Computed example of a mutant assay.
Amino acid sequence: MNTQQDLSKAFLYPALITVSILLIPLIAMQFSENVIWTVSDFIFAGLLILSCSLTYTLVTKKTTTVAYRVATGFALLTGLFLIWSNLAVGLIGSEDNEFNLLYFLVIGVGVMGAFIAKFKASGLKYTLFAMAAAQFIITIVALFTGMAEVPDSSVYEILAVNGFFITLFVVAGMLFQYAADEEKSNLSADFD
């Protein structure tokens, strides 16, 4: 019975967060003709936010360090923002440009790396640095394959948008480095 209550509680907060965030565009649609969401937009956004929130809840459930919680939240929000902006407007040209599918490789690197690292901060720092490297490689490929010539895209935009995400992934990696150092110092303090 206690396990069922724990699962219900673990699901409750992410569900409340998801509903709260989805209320923003729902309310905005009532007052502005510029905000146009379909039912499928709400469903997809809800699933994306809920999965991100649930992942945070499950991954940080057993940790006691604030640094690990902050690093995890920062990394998940960065990944969520990458997916969201890529699907909404596209990072190269419009959201319909097939080149944008490459950005899902960055998320794939993160998911695989997290499991390989067993969600430990010392391994997750390398995962986030690998995600930044993957984003960098995609940027270079975009520039050398003429993606700057695509409508709604330029060299400056490609460098700025990708540089922004690369920076966020590097910062998340540094936060995990800090969390790993904090865990190590807590462990050594326990042995003293």
Rank of each mutant, 00 (worst) to 15 (best):
K9G: 01
L187A: 15
A172W: 01
I116F: 13
N97E: 14
F104A: 06
S154I: 11
T18V: 07
T63E: 10
D6Q: 14
M1K: 10
V89C: 03
D190P: 01
F144H: 07
N162K: 00
I137S: 01
T55M: 09
Y68C: 10
L143T: 05
T65I: 07
P25S: 04
F81M: 07
T72N: 12
Q5F: 14
Y13W: 07
L159R: 03
Q4H: 14
N2D: 15
V150I: 12
Q177T: 11
N162W: 03
M131C: 14
N186A: 10
V66R: 13
E183H: 06
V66I: 10
S188V: 12
Y13K: 05
K125A: 13
F176S: 08
A180V: 05
M1A: 15
S188W: 00
N2S: 15
G108S: 03
V171I: 15
L187M: 11
A160G: 09
K125M: 14
A134V: 09
G93A: 03
S20W: 03
I43L: 04
N97F: 07
Q5W: 08
F115D: 10
T55N: 04
P14K: 00
L175C: 12
E182G: 03
I138H: 00
A88F: 09
T65R: 05
L91F: 08
S20H: 09
I27E: 00
L80E: 02
T63P: 12
A172C: 09
I137R: 01
V70Q: 06
S185T: 13
P14I: 05
L101K: 10
C52M: 15
F44D: 10
D41T: 11
T72L: 06
A132W: 07
L128I: 07
Y156D: 15
R69W: 07
Q4G: 13
Y178K: 06
A148S: 11
P14M: 01
W84M: 09
A142L: 01
L105Q: 04
E157N: 12
T127I: 10
F176Q: 02
F144Y: 14
I92A: 04
A130L: 11
G73L: 03
D192W: 10
A189P: 11
S122Q: 15
G46P: 11
N34M: 08
I137H: 00
L58Y: 15
N97C: 00
A132N: 13
G79Y: 00
D181V: 08
D152C: 00
G46S: 08
N162D: 13
G110S: 04
T63C: 09
S188E: 12
E182Y: 01
I107W: 05
T55A: 12
A10F: 05
